[in-house]
């Protein structure tokens, strides 16, 4: 059970190798196969996540949410996407057309690049990079640029303010977001995600780095622009922020990218803090999936419980609260590691 997906990948590999291709070509073909598998996985989850969010929101607001299409309304989003794709695709006359269109095409790219290194189970990642965690931080920073492109290209006051806010917020919160991982990196001495998960065999890093985990949750929530940090799309003041002018299929891209980002954030948190595939009895990939969805539910809980934060409070909170705490966490972790090593050499541990 534990190796079911690895065995499937092995069969596909043997099948492709049966055509007599060279070693490099087989490797390339396998990367492509795995990429498609991850893409299908992400899209299916996005479909479910939108449904889940609406039901969870309904639960928190004491109403039902979508419950008509299919059993318990599970096919609601399929219908929504079909509806969106069949609608008229409007490009505003005054829009900066190149920027406006490009933003919608590439909004999914950074998210998919993040999924390329996530270990969904033991040995279940597309590419196991040596600097996987750093790679994730690098490619996820591209989202800022794309969101600003969307806000700018629309040529709409509200969109532009939304894009400006997105830049201010995402660039600021990226700093505590990066720093929250540093404690874990210091403990493992590696940026490789599989090594980080292996190191959590006995004790998960949420136990050793609880403050870093909380910083990760807050800053991660701000990085993916979800409530209470959804200022770039704050409805009461900006209509829908940077994607106000997008319609039909292009709007669907932004909508789905938001949920793919949510899932990516949960996957990163599971890998780095919640022990990845480690867990008793059940197969590793199922543990990963369960932990990921616990984090997703936590994010939804936060979104539908807290009111939207004010923009100056948001900046103040980041620079004067989160950043000093994350720096102090790094310092304490360093001292702790040194003290532990000293105690070990003296034989007291």
């Amino acid at each position: 059970m534990d190796n079911i997906f690895i065995n499937i990948a092995g069969w596909i590999r043997d099948f492709i190798a049966g055509f007599g291709l060279s070693e490099g070509l087989v490797y390339l073909a396998m990367v492509l196969v795995k990429f498609v598998a991850v893409l299908v996985f992400v899209l299916l989850n996005v479909v479910f996540l939108v449904y889940m969010e609406r039901r969870v929101a309904g639960f928190f607001q004491e109403r039902l949410g979508p419950n008509r299409v299919g059993p318990q309304g599970i096919f609601q989003l399929v219908m929504d996407i079909l509806k969106l794709l069949s609608k008229e695709d409007i490009v505003p006359a005054g829009a900066d057309k190149l920027v406006y269109k490009t933003a919608a095409y590439v909004i999914f790219v950074p998210t998919m690049l993040v999924y390329m290194v996530i270990p969904f189970g033991k040995g279940m990642n597309v590419i196991d990079l040596n600097m996987g965690l750093f790679y994730i931080l690098a490619v996820s920073s591209l989202t800022t640029l794309i969101i600003f492109m969307a806000g700018w290209g629309s040529r709409n006051k509200y969109s532009l303010i939304g894009g400006m806010r997105a830049v201010a917020q995402m660039v600021s919160y990226e700093i505590p977001f990066v720093f929250s991982f540093l404690g874990v990196i210091m403990l493992t001495g590696s940026l490789k995600l599989s090594t980080i998960v292996e190191a959590q065999q006995d004790v998960w890093f949420i136990v050793l780095q609880p403050i870093a985990f909380i910083i990760f949750l807050i800053a991660g929530n701000a990085e993916i622009n979800r409530g209470p940090f959804d200022l770039p799309e704050g409805e009461q003041e900006l209509v829908a922020g940077y994607h106000t002018e997008y319609t039909a299929g292009r709007f669907a891209m932004f909508y789905m990218a938001e949920y793919a980002n949510l899932l990516a954030m949960a996957a990163i948190g599971t890998t780095v803090f919640l022990g990845g595939w480690h867990g008793p009895w059940l197969p590793g990939w199922l543990w990963f999936f369960i932990k990921m969805y616990i984090l997703v539910f936590g994010q939804m809980w936060v979104r539908w419980t807290f009111p939207r934060i004010r923009i100056d409070h948001m900046m103040h909170f980041n620079w004067k609260v989160l950043l000093p705490i994350s720096l102090a966490n790094i310092l304490v972790t360093g001292i702790g590691i040194k003290a532990y090593e000293m105690l070990r050499t003296m034989g007291w541990w």
């Binding site: 591209l142 400006m164 830049v167």
Partner: peptide, 21 residues
């Protein structure tokens, strides 16, 4: 030089949005 490539993306491409603003 994979590390340098990631730094290039994180610092230079990431900072382009600031430059645009």
């Amino acid at each position: 030089a994979g590390f340098l490539a990631a730094v290039q993306i994180l610092i230079y491409v990431g900072a382009i949005s600031i430059l645009m603003v």
